[in-house]
Nucleic acid binder design. Structure first.
Lengths: 314, 314
DNA sequence: TGCAAGTCTGCTCATATGAGCAGGGCCCCC
DNA sequence: GGGGGCCCTGCTCATATGAGCAGACTTGCA
């Protein structure tokens, strides 16, 4: 396209998109045939001079979703738009909303839904509407009895999802990580705990998030790990955690000893699930999101635009 | 619009604008008639959920131009888009380019064009193409012999505009501001200088910018004023200068004594011009731009989007 | 200079879209 | 409970737009 045409295509675009003129009128104004105007507009679009954004908290980016499905082999992808987002919290809220929408629209409705816990899951539970499903039973897939004042959000999350979905919640009555391997083995051999884990293994779908490997981790907040523990994991290559288990950029367990003391489904258990919905958003989670997708931990990803583009760049 | 419709209109917009589906196809996907889809899309637009931007250095904002004409009584307005602008310099370049485009397209072509000088005018002269006009004579409308190393840009600007326009330049051989009133009067009574000013008064069009009243002023850079002088002017209400004369937010001369020592057309001379093109862009010039437009100093304004919106808000 | 290939132009025709209208349902007020 | 008015729906019809085609024009090369 020569420079004259480029300039004309911009003039035409102004009249077309900002002034709502018809191509015919534009033709008269610029002394061109209406066909030429149509071609100029097509060129302007094709060269990327025209940007159309949908500004709405619920807006999604379908072309990016398609690329994620096609290029990263996901069964499904939900990408919320970052257009007009002012803060990371808003992005998180949008993503949680999208996850709630996805669950609500899910067919067939899962009879049993395995869930993890954390800030993201809690927010999803808040965004779900009463009656989002009729009769969904929820089961926790990783340990979540918190050690401090925050106690209860893990349980509250599962219970809220279940109640709003007209079902009941089965909690996993265990800490996330135990200090000694023996304690962990003892807990897992407990009849109730073993039963919950068995139920979790048979869930129709899993819904989980991932946490970044940094000092903002819920594991630090909940008292399971210290900042130094996390620093050490990062040194060993950790990019974040999924269902309480720290992974490197390839999705492999970073610290097998720590992992052995972690209660709940193993990563292989998760990978065996048929429908595995990961909800991961925000700058700090780009690396984990990548690891989760790369290693096939999820079959469906709900995320934000920037994270999605990060996955596609790599 | 109820919430369901709002959400549907977003889904429809995604399919329409991002996936290029027809309204009919969208209707099938969302189980709506195609007329409903059309109405949802119209609502989405009308509610401002759809933003269409033209991303190009030469893109203009025609609706804002119209508002400036209608609400601020300008004969014409050129507003360059700030979409995708990375730095103030880029904005300045875009505006200068737009001014050059405007001059080039101007009909009837002015026989004599009166110009001021400064960074903006210099940049306009650089963006003009050889042969932008055939036979335009240029005359300086305010004093511009610089006192320091920067000497010559004032003259170079006028000469470049004239040469590229196939005409010649008449320079005003005088400093911008003189130390003593007597000297100024002596200079203005000089035959040559008086003749140039007379010629300037009779110009078909004026092209000028405005400077902010701060320490970045060209008057400081050129040595006509000290930083303290400018601070004092600001204290007296100055928002900036036009053809070397400092004005307040109403467009009135701030310091009559200083003004009397300033060589060139007076503000009233400028206001008597038929075609008065002001080129003013950038955050720091919002206040002067407002004063210039308010007080009728210009009949045509070339500016950037943010400045234009500032004028319309006030 | 002459020819071939590629590009651009203005058209015809099919399709997509928007304006405007009539019928039907809903709500509000009596 | 009845009537009037409002809004929403699905339609017809006019218009705007995009696909595709044939001829003209330019360009490169012999």
């Amino acid at each position: 396209m020569d420079e004259t045409d480029e300039l004309l295509s911009i003039r035409a675009a102004e009249l077309y998109y900002e002034e709502n003129k018809t191509q015919d009128e534009i033709g008269q104004a610029l002394r061109l045939t209406r066909w030429k105007v149509g071609r100029l507009l097509a060129q302007a679009k094709q060269q990327g001079f025209i940007r159309i954004e949908i500004l709405h908290p619920r807006a999604r980016r379908l072309p990016i979703e398609r690329r994620l499905r096609e290029e990263r082999g996901l069964e499904d992808a939900i990408v919320v738009s970052s257009a007009g987002v002012a803060s990371p919290d808003e992005l998180q809220a949008r993503t949680a909303q999208a996850a709630a929408d996805y669950l609500t629209a899910l067919r067939p409705v899962p009879r049993t839904l395995g869930v993890s816990w954390g800030r993201t899951l809690f927010e999803i539970s808040q965004h779900l509407r009463n009656g989002w499903a009729t009769g969904v039973n929820v089961v926790q897939i990783n340990g979540g009895v918190s050690l401090n004042r925050r106690a209860g959000t893990a349980a509250a999350t599962a219970v809220a999802i279940a109640q709003k979905g007209g079902g009941s919640a089965t909690l996993l009555p265990s800490p996330a990580i135990l200090e000694h391997l023996a304690t962990k083995e003892a807990i897992e051999s407990d009849r109730v705990v073993a039963g919950v884990i068995e139920l979790a293994r048979s869930a129709d779908a899993y819904l989980f998030s991932a946490g970044p490997a940094d000092h903002t981790s819920v594991h630090i907040e909940s008292g399971y790990l210290t900042e130094a523990d996390v620093d050490l994991l990062v040194q060993k290559g950790a990019v974040g955690d999924v269902v309480g288990r720290y992974i490197d950029s390839e999705g492999n367990i970073v610290d097998p000893a720590l992992d052995a003391r972690t209660v709940g489904l193993t990563l292989d258990d998760v990978r065996d699930g048929r429908l595995r919905i990961a909800v991961i958003a925000g700058r700090s989670k780009h690396a984990v999101a990548d690891a989760v997708v790369r290693s096939g931990l999820c079959s469906v990803l709900v995320t934000d635009e920037a994270t999605a583009l990060h996955l596609l760049d790599g």
